[in-house]
Amino acid sequence: MDITAELDEMRKAIRGCSLVAFTDLTSKLVLSTSAAAAPMQEEMNALSEAAGLALDGAFAEGAAPVWGGEEPAELAILMTGEDARLFLRSQANPAEALVCVCGATTDLSEAAEAARATLDRIVSAG
C-alpha cells in the first residue's frame, strides 16, 4: 500500500486541510506525510510532541477519569480561532496515529471520520 497516496487523498478530501501525517506515538517519529507545502522539521516535531501529549501524556491522563479511565484517549483536537489539529489513535495498533492540520472552519466530524477510515486502511494493510 502506498501510505503517502492514502494521506494525499485524505488531505485533498478535507476542506481546509493542509497536512496529514502518519506517526508512531511511542518513538514520536513521523512515518509519512502529505502536505500542501513542505513542512519544516520543527513543525513536525511540534506536532509529534502535541500528539503524544494529547493522546498519551498529561492531557490524556487528565481527561481519562471523565470516561472511567479504562481505555486510552482515541481522539484529540487542539483548536484555536485559526486552525484545528486533530490527532487520532489507531484502535488496531495503539502506538500509531494520524495527525491532521485543518483550517479554522474545517468540518471536524468529517475530518475525524476521514481520518478514522484512512488510519484503518493503513494499519490493516501494514
Partner: peptide
C-alpha cells in the same frame, strides 16, 4: 507544548474510542 503560537482562544477536546 500544545499551543505554541499566541491565540485569542484555545479549545481542547479529548475522547476515548
Amino acid at each position: 507544548v500544545a499551543f505554541r503560537e499566541p491565540a485569542l482562544s484555545c479549545g481542547t477536546l479529548i475522547a476515548a474510542a
